[in-house]
Amino acid sequence: MRGDSSRERILARVAKATASRQRLPHPGALVTPPADDPVGGFVKRFTSSGGEVAEADPERSPSEWLTGFLGGLDPAVAGVAIGADVPADLRPRLPAVAAAHAGAGISVAWGAVAESGSLVLPSTGTRTAQLLPPVHIVWVPEGRVFARLEDALAELQDGLPAGVGLHSGPSKSADIGRTVVTGVHGPGRCIALVGPGSTASTGVT
């Protein structure tokens, strides 16, 4: 809190500690090589981290296709938790249930990043749907795949929501006997559906 004496004490100590030290300049931006195929780069990185990528059938409506896709998973998904920002035409025709009991969570990414293989998920899209179900399905508009994480964060910065999650694969741990286990806390399967489009999810300006 402002006016806190500890605040003043710490800032005074920091100022004193650095007073006689040369103030070093910022080195500027980190220069990294550009990617010429962001979508391909994203798919490669995301799948190498254990993420999965599926392609919707363009002959069917996204909603119809997703309903069939969820029914074909093992175990078949009977109820879903859907992010508040998922448009009606991307929602499966399955009962909506509480995230803690859902077989899958459905989200729309604000964007994705090739460099790190990450999905960018704003908190306006219902966090519990992104985290509690064992399977997380994420629609990714291919026009929103950024080559570099820096580019994505720079654009996101203009309308930052309260929370953002970068999801780059399934939940995993090697804390027991150095054996990798998936689905420890968050979703054990994270499936990106990369399709046409260039609009960011709603709720983020």
Binding site: S123, P161, A162, G163, G165
Partner: peptide, 17 residues
Amino acid sequence: CFVSLVQGPAVHPDDDG
């Protein structure tokens, strides 16, 4: 696999944070 970027409390009506 997961990065959380926390700016503050939930303010958007659809944010369950």
